[in-house]
């Protein structure tokens, strides 16, 4: 018994990455990035605004947070929709209190179903970024290029109709992509995506359809990861965010501007027993010297010229 001899062939074993999407780079060796007004750390709030059909699909995979019981799963359908009715408004108010503008990663279905919510978000100065069609719109290898392209374009069309502007950014459901995704996003005219969690700063990827910026949305710092997956308390979550800020702020003194990405989910963070602690976290961040809140398109705009 032996493995196929090809298992000991290493065709990509050479300097650099084992693919052509981006080049390796040490964050501490890059020219320091500066943010406007001498700010050192920018908190980038990204709110996932999601609509889960009560009829889930498993192709290519079932989205995190999707239906779990036999049909009809009222408990998850409604608990998720709570985020779109109540939770999001608590979050919007919390952002307003500290004067923060955020990126809202919305399903196209949110625009189709809840145009008044879209207007409230846009009127408050937040950016809409694209987050697929609805929570059945997962992407992974096997979806097929034509279907994936249509999914991207449909999402952008829906969001543009409701928000009045075509989104510049993209966040995949579960940050899951196919091998085609970066190229199809660039082809669709998107300027940045958030899926690759391999860095603390934006960097440029190359695709056959042109370049696209990856603005990493650290999943480890997300409310889903810390509160739902790891089942830690909201107080621990807030402490971890303050610790992350403190570390990044200290690092910025020697290495230039940093980003603290807060990926927030309305049906997770927007609950009555959590929101007050989150409001206090935002207020604490707002009070830190050298701190600012920024939208993804602003960060990409400021960083774009500096990252070559």
């Amino acid at each position: 018994m032996a493995l196929d001899p090809a298992y000991l062939d290493y065709p990509h074993r050479h300097k650099g990455m084992d693919h052509g999407l981006y080049r390796w780079s040490n964050i501490f060796d890059r020219p320091a990035i500066t943010w406007p007004d001498s700010r050192r750390v920018l908190t980038w709030v990204v709110i996932d605004l999601e609509w889960f059909p009560i009829t889930p699909t498993d192709k290519p995979f079932r989205a995190p947070g999707h239906m779990q019981t036999s049909y009809p799963d009222y408990r998850h359908y409604t608990a998720r929709d709570y985020g779109n009715r109540v939770g999001i408004y608590r979050l919007l108010d919390a952002l307003t209190k500290v004067g923060a503008r955020a990126s809202v990663a919305a399903n196209g279905a949110i625009a189709e179903r809840y145009p008044e919510l879209m207007r409230d978000i846009v009127d408050a100065g937040h950016e809409i970024i694209a987050h697929s069609t609805d929570m059945n719109g997962t992407i992974a290898t096997g979806i097929g290029e034509a279907e994936e392209r249509a999914l991207i374009v449909d999402t952008l069309d829906s969001l543009e109709r409701a928000a009045g502007a075509r989104p510049k950014g993209w966040l995949s459901i579960a940050r899951s992509q196919s091998f085609d995704t970066p190229r199809l996003l660039a082809e669709a005219g998107l300027g940045y995506m958030c899926d690759w969690v391999n860095d603390d700063l934006p960097y440029r990827m190359e695709t056959p359809a042109g370049a696209i910026i990856n603005l990493p949305l650290n999943h480890e710092l997300s409310d889903r990861q810390i509160l739902t997956v790891q089942q830690q308390s909201i107080d621990s979550y807030c402490e971890q965010m303050r610790d992350a800020f403190a570390w990044l702020d200290a690092e910025s003194a020697r290495h230039g501007g940093r980003i603290l990405p807060l990926n927030i989910t309305p049906y997770i963070m927007g609950l009555p027993y959590r929101i007050a602690a989150f409001e206090q976290l935002l207020a604490w961040l707002a009070a830190q010297p050298g701190h600012g809140f920024a939208r993804g398109d602003e960060i990409v705009g400021w960083a774009g010229a500096q990252i070559g």
């Binding site: 290519p60 992974a140 290898t141 995949s172 899951s176 969690v197």
Partner: peptide, 19 residues
């Protein structure tokens, strides 16, 4: 765990060598 590319799995680990 996912069909290749497992973007989060790979990129999370790639964070090591960049950051």
């Amino acid at each position: 765990a996912k069909p290749h590319p497992d973007v989060v799995g790979y990129a999370h680990r790639d964070y090591a060598n960049r950051v």
